[in-house]
Design a protein around this nucleic acid. Structure first.
Lengths: 153, 153
DNA sequence: GCAATCAGGTTTAATAATGCAACCACGCGG
DNA sequence: CCGCGTGGTTGCATTATTAAACCTGATTGC
C-alpha cells in the first residue's frame, strides 16, 4: 500500500501535512505547547501505543519540531520540548480549536475555551488581513507563482 | 486493530482532527476551496485511489463539510461543494500554508504565494488578538473551563 | 546490597487502513 | 449497438496502527 508521500509536492499545505499530518502528531504538539515534556506524560495524556509515540517523537525530532533536552529534574532521562519551528505551529492549533468552537455539532462536549491570560476573556477569531489592513475572506485572495519563471531561451 | 476515535474527546483540537485529520481530507478541502468540484477533478489533482476518494468524500458529506449538488453543466452527475462549515476550514489552510512558508527546509520548492486579489500583494500572517486588541502569542493565553462546573450538593 | 519498581522504550503478532487494478453502471455519440 | 467518459465499487496485496509482552538502565525499599 505505501502511503503516498507529499514531501515533494509544491503546495505548502501538502508539505506541512507531510510533516505532521498524521493521526497523532498535532496532538503531541498540542500537548507540548501545554507544557508536557516527558514520554510518560504524552503517553498518559493521549492514550496511544508506546511504539507509535516513540515513532512520532522520533520523526518530530528529525523535522526539528521538537528537540530533546537532557533533563529538568536532575534525573538521567530526556525531555521533549518545542523548537521555534514547533512553536510556529501554534496558529494552526488555534485555527483548529476555533473551527470546533464554531462548527462542532456537540459544542457542549468541549471542555475548555481559549482566553487571554491577562484579562481572562475569550480571544478574537483568527483573521486574515492584507498588508494595507483590509480584512480578507476566502474570495478576496488568490495564488500567485512564487517567482517569475525563467523562460528557456 | 481499530484506529482510536477522538470523537468523544473534550479537546476541540482533537475533535477537529477526528473529522478531517486524516491523510487526504484537508487536501480535498483545499482543492474544493480552489474551485474544484468534480470527482474526476479531485482524483486527477490529488492522485489518490478512487476508492479512497469516494470514501473521504462520503465522510466529508456526512460531516456536512461538503454537500452534493445536482450538476452545473447540465450533465446527470453530481458535484461536491463546500458548505459554510467547510468554508470555515479556510483559516486552517492558511495557517498550514504560512507555517510552510516560514519554516520549510526547502522553500524554493513552494510554487505559490497567497496574495490579496485586489492589490496582488502577499497577505499578512494570521495573528491572534485579545478582545481589547492586544496581540497575543503562545505565552499570553491560557485555557479556562467552558462553564463553571455545577458543584454537587 | 538485592529485590522490586518505574521510565522509556523495542519486539511481536493481530487487525485495520491504504493502494492498485480490474470491474460495473449509466448516459451519450455515432 | 458499440465504444467511450464519468463516477464509482469490489478484490486482493501491502503497510500502518494497535495492544501486549518484553527489555534495559536507573531509582527506591528495606
Amino acid at each position: 500500500m505505501k502511503r503516498t508521500s507529499l514531501a515533494g509536492d509544491s503546495c505548502p499545505v501538502a508539505r506541512a501535512l507531510d510533516v505532521f499530518g498524521d493521526w497523532w502528531s498535532l496532538l503531541i504538539i498540542r500537548d507540548a505547547s501545554l507544557g508536557r515534556r516527558r514520554f510518560g506524560e504524552f503517553q498518559a495524556s493521549l492514550g496511544l501505543a508506546k511504539n507509535i509515540l516513540a515513532s512520532r517523537l522520533r520523526t518530530l525530532v528529525e523535522h526539528r519540531i521538537l528537540k530533546t533536552v537532557p533533563a529538568s529534574d536532575g534525573s538521567a532521562y530526556q525531555e521533549y520540548v518545542l523548537t521555534p519551528k514547533g512553536h510556529g505551529i501554534f496558529p494552526i492549533l488555534v485555527a483548529l480549536r476555533q473551527w470546533s468552537e464554531e462548527f462542532d455539532e456537540h459544542p457542549e462536549e468541549i471542555a475548555t475555551i481559549l482566553v487571554d491570560r491577562e484579562k481572562g476573556k475569550p480571544v478574537k477569531k483568527l483573521a486574515l488581513y492584507s498588508q494595507d489592513g483590509r480584512l480578507l475572506n476566502e474570495a478576496d485572495i488568490t495564488l500567485k507563482p512564487r517567482k517569475a519563471r525563467r523562460v528557456p531561451a
